[in-house]
Amino acid sequence: MALLEVRDLTVQFRRRGEEPFTAVDGVSFDVDPGQTIGLVGESGCGKSVTSLAIMGLLPRKGNQVTGSVRFEDTELLSLSQSQMRDRRGRDLGMVFQDPLSSLNPVVSIGLQVTEVLERHRGMARKAAMVEATELLDKVGIPDPGRRLSEYPHQLSGGMRQRALIAMALACRPRLLIADEPTTALDVTIQAQILALLKELVTDTGTALIMITHDLGVVAGLCDEVNVLYGGRVVERAARHELFAEPRHPYTHGLLASIPRLDAPRGEKLVPIKGSVADNIPWDGACAFAPRCPNALDTCTQVTPEQESLANRLLRCHNPVEVTA
């Protein structure tokens, strides 16, 4: 049985006097223990909102979250705020993109890490401090004892991200959600953090949901990849299948539009025309149709259903042909 089952998750933002905006539109996926799942897409595709909805971090006012998020035997969406607070940090950990704004600037690193340990594992201050030192050491922060008394501004970006990962892992969660954990970092630091995440996931058996716009990050890390567009999963496959044979025109277009370090130079990139602003609603159409090179007449008349093919899920009327 899956560790996390997301079914038909839909998030609508409602504002007075405006049409409700559907940020996430019926997203379903499973995460097995120890598995790494990727959610990939551009800005506005709903990948971050999906993670916030799973964690129960969206404000209840003004948002409508429907569908189901089952974590083992518990329906997370029906938990009360305080029950959810118990779960967060203990069973579910989260790492955000910008480590500086997700750490409290006026509280020392040590206090922020031990807070989690005291709250969820009921540890005494002293024991928590010892444990915190070990945690910082495990995530590769040099001289962890001294770091504990320091404040976030005294750490570099990479070290802050490590401290956040240490906090997220403090209670050995079974599921970790990482929302663009390396986007704010330089490439050499990104490589360090990705190597660390990979190692931690392998060592502890924690399941990981990796949210990113960078297909390169996904290629090295995720077992299964969900490509999101306009709030829906448009293609899902194991990573080797997805990159070898992207079938959805959007996935295909994304891969053709990024320059690669290892490919011969001199070839023109093939961009996707238009921008996310050209999306049309999914009702009675495919949101990607205005930008799609494969678009048919049906694409603006009928909403494509999610179909399962031999090795993937696909939502497209006219997928890219397999070449080989």
Partner: peptide
């Protein structure tokens, strides 16, 4: 180091 750190969108290469 810089070049080796850049992720390549190809699992075969990454592995």
């Amino acid at each position: 180091a810089l070049l080796s750190a850049v992720p390549v969108p190809d699992p075969l290469v990454e592995d």
